Simulated scan of single mutants.
Amino acid sequence: MRKLAGYIFTPVHYLFFGLLLLLFHPIQWLCLKLGGYHAHKRSVDILNYLLTGTYCVMGSRARFINNENLPEGRPILFVANHQSMYDIPPLVWNLRRYHAKFISKLELTRGIPSISFNLKHGGAANIDRKDAKQSTGEILKLAQKMREQKWSAIIFPEGTRSKDGHMKRFAAGGTGIILKKVPDVLLVPIVIKGSWELTRYGSFPLSFGEKMSWTVLKPIEPAGRTAEEVLKEAESAIAFTAVPPASC
């Protein structure tokens, strides 16, 4: 039934999703040129709120749960598992007050309306995974902004999406650099559940009626600990909280 309904509603979802990306590309450009960083960021926040709303077309519920009293004015490193591209909009919208920037693949900065523009001009660290020097330089620039502007960052330490919900091992990589270069950073794990099920049949059809959640877990103070220890604790917390994936 989920697959059958997916054939009907997936084209409608993609229509709304795509139109929003096309519409907000020039809006972002205008906001950046006329209002600078803050106006541009506001346009990106609104875009991602609306993109999250398109999940309803697929009968899906996107629930963001944050019962933690996270500090503002302090850089935060949000660490999450990664299941699909649908992980992104709820994170951007619900973490908007923390100025959270992604560590993303360089390939995404080309050819995708709105998304590519934001990655290039919104402060993300866009890394070439084949070029260690370039990747390190990008993350160091983000770390400097985190220190100076009190920005935050979002990273998926698995390195790639888990298409079946099973978590891959976390790699230190960019997480380790930020933990070392931003002394007052707070690490906050986020567990994502259910978004892989939306794409269980691939990009078409999407699965109808899936329930998805993003849950902010207890923050971890990195001070006095190695990056490996801190990341391992975050990985364990996310793995422990994650619901075992449903069978296809």
Rank of each mutant, 00 (worst) to 15 (best):
K181L: 07
S43V: 15
P71V: 03
G18D: 07
S195Q: 05
L179R: 04
K181Q: 14
E210A: 05
N67I: 05
L22V: 12
G111L: 06
R161P: 09
V191C: 15
E158W: 01
L95H: 06
E228Y: 05
A234V: 00
T52G: 12
L4R: 14
L34C: 07
E148M: 09
H99V: 01
D164C: 09
V185C: 03
A62L: 07
K141L: 12
A100D: 02
V243Y: 12
E138L: 07
Y49A: 10
K150D: 09
I177T: 05
A100K: 00
Q149M: 07
F240H: 14
P244E: 11
V216T: 08
Y37E: 15
G176S: 09
I190V: 10
A223D: 07
R63Q: 10
Y37S: 13
V92L: 08
R225A: 05
I65V: 10
G224P: 08
E148K: 03
S43M: 08
M212F: 04
K101M: 09
L34K: 14
T109W: 01
K145M: 11
F240A: 15
I127V: 15
N118M: 11
Y14F: 12
I139H: 00
G137L: 04
K163C: 10
L186M: 10
H82V: 05
D184G: 09
G174K: 01
Y14K: 08
V188G: 05
V182W: 01
A80F: 01
I178E: 01
A124N: 13
V243H: 14
N69S: 12
E210R: 11
R96W: 08
V185T: 10
I8N: 09
D184L: 07
P157A: 02
H25W: 12
A80I: 00
M212D: 03
P113D: 00
S213A: 07
V182C: 05
G137V: 06
A171I: 08
A153K: 01
P11C: 14
L21V: 03
I27N: 06
V191W: 02
S60P: 03
M1G: 15
G209A: 06
A237G: 01
K145Y: 01
A227T: 02
I238S: 08
L142I: 03
N94A: 02
